[in-house]
């Protein structure tokens, strides 16, 4: 039954990551995502891995739970690896029939795979440790600078939180409508794609009609509770930074600086430094 679907995959646990201000977590996730895409060499990836492992350990969510999100991504992952592997031109290391696998292809495929997997894990940690309502609060506060260019951030955030509030209601409603129509002989599983799409009409029409009615009722209810769109609303639980949040920001700053620095480490030069170091050692021993 559709009831079984759980949305908003918040995992309740008492951890440092859970207690962080949602804005910090949003920034941290954003920085992590950026770092993945500006990473050019192995050092950056090592740093990112360390960053991710720290987060995984600190958030106390079982690892199996975190990587659950990867399952739905397997196909995409597979396709992207295959494309990069087979279609990148360069130095051929392996070939059979018309397919050539190049060194560049392997590296690119590996990079893509790591990026995708890290991306999913990183954002899963955000959603697993932050309730949807905290998340919208964080977005509202974090993006409030957009007010300057007349983006109604507060209204959008309220819309999002109302949408979240109505998800369980609508799921239950879908269930009820399906039951009512199935009791009249409707079948939502049988037939080809077109038949299936057609079978959805008896589900979707009542769902939309009801959603409009709910929206109408809700508008009345909000108005009668003194809601005026452009007013300066206050918050019951305004977001406030704590010590741990500032400390995390400093860590994030250090991390992003390190990531940028890795861009200036050239693998060749590293090797040559190491090479000359080895040469020096050799000289020392020979003497």
């Amino acid at each position: 039954m559709i009831r079984d679907i759980t949305l908003g995959q918040y995992y309740k646990k008492d951890s440092i990551v859970h207690s962080l201000d949602p804005r910090v977590k949003l920034v941290a996730t954003l920085i992590f995502l950026i770092s993945l895409f500006i990473s050019t060499n192995i050092f950056a990836y090592i740093l990112a891995t360390a960053y991710l492992i720290t987060a995984i350990i600190l958030c106390k969510v079982p690892f199996g739970f975190i990587i659950r999100g990867l399952k739905s991504l397997l196909l995409l992952l597979f396709i992207s690896i295959a494309f990069n592997l087979f279609l990148t031109p360069g130095k051929v290391v392996f070939s059979f029939y018309a397919i050539n696998i190049t060194k560049e292809g392997i590296i690119l495929a590996l990079k893509m795979a790591i990026r995708l997997v890290y991306l999913v894990i990183g954002s899963s940690i955000l959603t697993l440790t932050t309730t949807p309502s905290k998340l919208t609060d964080g977005l509202e506060k974090g993006l409030s600078f957009l007010n300057v260019i007349k983006v109604p951030v507060a209204e959008i955030a309220l819309m999002m939180s109302i949408a979240l509030r109505f998800i369980p209601t609508l799921i239950e409603e879908v269930d009820k409508i399906m039951n009512a129509q199935m009791s009249r002989g409707a079948n939502f599983e049988k037939g080809n794609l077109i038949e299936k799409a057609k079978a959805l009409i008896p589900l979707l029409v009542p769902l939309f009609v009801s959603a409009f009615k709910r929206a109408n009722d809700l508008a009345y209810a909000m108005e009668s509770r003194c809601y005026v769109g452009d007013s300066k609303r206050t918050k019951l639980r305004p977001l406030k930074y704590k010590r741990i949040d500032y400390i995390t920001y400093i860590y994030l700053l250090v991390f992003i600086i390190l990531i940028f620095l890795t861009r200036y480490i050239k693998i060749d030069s590293t090797l040559s430094i190491m090479g000359s170091f080895r040469g020096a050692l050799k000289l020392y021993y020979e003497r």
Partner: peptide, 25 residues
């Protein structure tokens, strides 16, 4: 089974279409 809320089953353009749904099925 007649469920509590009729709104959860009415979907057709006219009443007679809606009533006929089950009969056709």
């Amino acid at each position: 089974i007649v469920f509590q809320y009729p709104d959860y089953q009415l979907f057709s353009e006219t009443v007679i279409d809606d009533v006929a749904f089950g009969a056709i099925k």
